[in-house]
Design a protein around this nucleic acid. Structure first.
Length: 489
RNA sequence: CGGGGUGUGGCUCAGCCCGGUAGAGCGCUACGUUCGGGACGUAGAGGUCGGAGGUUCGAAUCCUCUCACCCCGACCA
């Protein structure tokens, strides 16, 4: 069965594509750059959504929904925002088709829109245009809103989950009375993302700030969490932006202060997308298929009965039912696979490939011995356990798997992080891959030079870790602290 | 948007150079034997060869155009 999947060591990109397709996570649609997210993939996304949504609610946010279509003129109101997104917008120019003897249907030339609409690449503009009507006084602030939505960015090159023309995400958009409060919000949501990445995805991340060239179009400051994939490349897993008063000024959003003065509000926005699915896959999965952290697995425990006939099947069912009930009482999701069309061996391979964290097999031998066979996906270890207290044992095992995945990913990142002081060392280090901590003089010129010569970009200026000053590895000019360079997705 | 590649049953591909009316494996259907790591046997079903035009007695095969997808570059959550 190993030949189902390209090995990571042979071709990492192909391994990823094969895995996404064969684990039934997603497939390409007939529309270029777009994907169909299949039930197994979507179930994982739903678990991410639920966990994040609860975290947003717990930090005082509420959900709303803003339109897919945005008047073209809105985009033009914030200068750097236009520049960032204009090149990749889908535009709606007509609102009607008509039948045509040759082509079936054609766009009705009579139905041209007076003002063309763009399909949102992100919603800052329409949201801030709306907020103008909602915010009049400091009493209306802060305004803490999130939306779950799809957005479209017409990308040249796409990859399932990592970069698609249409993707699903959440975007938070908040308004505040003061700069300080907006920055606190930006940092708070970044921390929410860190906790989510580490505790749910079991994916260690580094919190940092983007350089000016990597900053979100329209932001004063872009914060991010950066993760390292198994091939040593960096992946931006989430961003949180301090937008200053840029959008408030562009859309005229003023509020009356306590002192009865008119001021522009301060804004943030933050988002994570279905790209996290790609991050999840590339952080944990192996040559045997998908590996899911238990907290995000749609089904945590698959139970495979080994039965020759319906009678044995029922015997096994009643043997294991108390344990299943005990597991479910703990909130653990369990599937008893009584499909008699498929053989146990087939099921083993299938659950392994699709990343079910724990598999329990029960056959006649176990029935005699009062045991079950428990297999864990992360290490592929199998052991025979007494049925007694099996729910407790599995609960602990799930936790152990969650922890192990995080620790393994952390160890990989630490082993693949290099500290260098000279540009020559850097050029060698970047070929080995991983994160490189090096001093940088803070200029876009140096950043661009490194990018051109090595294809490595500054992933972020870390918020934590060694913050001691030094000199730039390229120019020798003063550097405030080491930054993270890497090749990135 | 440049450079390369591929389109043939559901999937992976052979056939194309050198034209003669489409094949394999997997999957699928039925029946039987099986069932502790993707079982086996027997019998079946399933294809406008991406699309359009052309050459020819005859095109999956040759020519022209076109569409889609994949990989590599320039741009990006």
């Amino acid at each position: 069965m190993a030949d189902l999947l390209t090995k990571r060591s042979e071709d990492y990109a192909k391994w990823y594509n094969d895995l996404v397709l064969k684990a039934d996570l997603a497939e390409h649609s007939d529309v270029r750059g777009c994907m169909v997210i299949k039930p197994h993939g979507y179930a994982i996304w739903e678990k991410m959504q639920r966990a994040l949504d609860e975290m947003f609610k717990a930090t005082g946010h509420v959900n709303a929904y803003f339109p897919l279509f945005i008047p073209k003129s809105y985009l033009a109101k914030e200068a750097s925002h236009v520049e960032g997104f204009a090149k990749e917008c889908a535009v709606v120019t007509h609102y009607r088709l008509k039948s045509d003897p040759v082509h079936g249907v054609i766009v009705d030339p009579e139905a041209k829109l007076e003002e063309e609409l763009i399909v949102r690449p992100t919603s800052e503009t329409i949201i801030w245009n709306t907020y103008r009507g909602w915010i009049k006084s400091y009493r209306d602030l802060p305004l803490l809103i999130n939306q779950w939505a799809n957005v479209v960015r017409w990308e040249m090159r796409t990859r399932l989950f990592l970069r698609t023309a249409e993707f699903l995400w959440q975007e938070g958009h908040t308004a505040h009375a003061t700069k300080e409060e907006a920055i606190v919000e930006t940092e708070r949501m970044l921390e929410v993302y860190r906790v989510f990445a580490e505790e749910w995805l079991a994916m260690p991340v580094i919190k940092g700030i983007k350089t000016a060239s990597e900053r979100f179009a329209g932001a004063e400051e872009t914060y991010c969490i950066e993760a390292m994939m198994q091939d040593g490349k960096a992946l931006q897993a989430g961003t949180s932006h301090f937008l200053g008063q840029n959008f408030a000024k562009a859309f005229d959003v003023l509020f009356t202060t306590r002192e009865n003065k008119q001021e522009h509000v301060w804004a943030t926005s933050w988002g994570v997308s279905t790209r996290l699915m790609g991050a999840l896959i590339m952080t944990h999965s192996d040559d045997h298929g998908l590996v899911l952290p238990p907290k995000l697995a749609p089904v945590q425990v698959a139970i495979v009965p080994i039965a020759k006939n319906a009678e044995q099947m029922e015997g096994i069912r009643s043997y294991i039912t108390p344990a299943m009930e005990a597991l479910r009482a703990k909130g653990i999701t369990v599937k008893f696979d009584d499909d008699d069309q498929k053989k146990p061996g087939w099921k083993f391979a299938e659950y392994e490939f699709k990343g079910y964290p724990v598999r329990i097999a029960i056959g006649p031998r176990d029935m005699e011995n009062g045991t079950v066979e428990v297999a864990r996906r992360d290490t592929l270890e199998k052991q025979v356990m007494q049925l007694t207290d099996i729910a407790d044992k599995v609960e602990h095992l799930l936790q152990a798997i969650q922890d192990n995945l995080y620790q393994k990913a952390l160890a990989l990142r630490e082993n693949s992080t290099q500290v260098v002081d000279t540009y020559d060392e850097f050029k060698e280090a970047i070929e080995r891959g991983g994160f490189i901590l090096a001093h940088w003089d803070g200029t876009a010129v140096t950043e661009e030079l490194v990018k051109e010569e090595t294809k490595a970009t500054i992933r972020c200026i870390p918020l934590e870790g060694d913050g001691s000053p030094g000199v730039c590895m390229v120019t020798g000019k003063p550097s405030a602290r080491r930054v993270i360079f890497a090749r990135a997705y």
